[in-house]
């Protein structure tokens, strides 16, 4: 059948009705301080990996919290677990524990 070059495009928006938030909920249990993040970007600013790669820890854990897990495993492998991000967080989020547990949950 001739489709005249048309395709069905997938939406770019996050659909919180259909998003699978189970891993994000599990992460909140494992790392309770995850809930306090205000997205200030201090972790991503200080991140050792971010100075050499396009890794953005803040975006990664925001995507995780919205159930957008695609591609996160590769992203998280850029982190070297140095823990600098934990030192600067004004909300006391244990970002290092967050990363370790995100990896675990994504492997499940």
């Amino acid at each position: 059948m001739n489709k005249f070059g048309f395709n069905i495009a997938t939406t770019r928006s996050i659909n919180l009705d259909s998003a699978n938030l189970s891993k994000s909920a599990a992460l909140q249990e494992l790392v309770p301080s995850y809930r306090y993040c205000i997205g200030c970007g201090a972790c991503s600013a200080t991140c050792s990996a971010a100075s050499m790669t396009d890794f953005n820890i803040r975006q990664v854990h925001f995507k995780f919290s919205r159930g957008q897990y695609d591609g996160l495993v590769d992203e998280l492998n850029k982190c070297m677990l140095c823990g600098k991000c934990v030192l600067v967080c004004p909300r006391g989020v244990n970002t290092r524990a967050l990363i370790i547990n995100m990896r675990k949950l994504l492997e499940e």
């Binding site: 997205g39 970007g41 201090a42």
Partner: peptide, 29 residues
């Protein structure tokens, strides 16, 4: 700029270098 400065350092000519994330762009600054 929406982002918290994570650290500041000195430059050889007495100025200050700062690091932050421009969180609205998602890019380090």
């Amino acid at each position: 700029v929406r982002g918290r400065i994570s650290e500041a350092g000195g430059t050889f000519d007495g100025r200050v270098q700062i690091k932050a994330e421009d969180t609205l762009l998602g890019l380090p600054l």
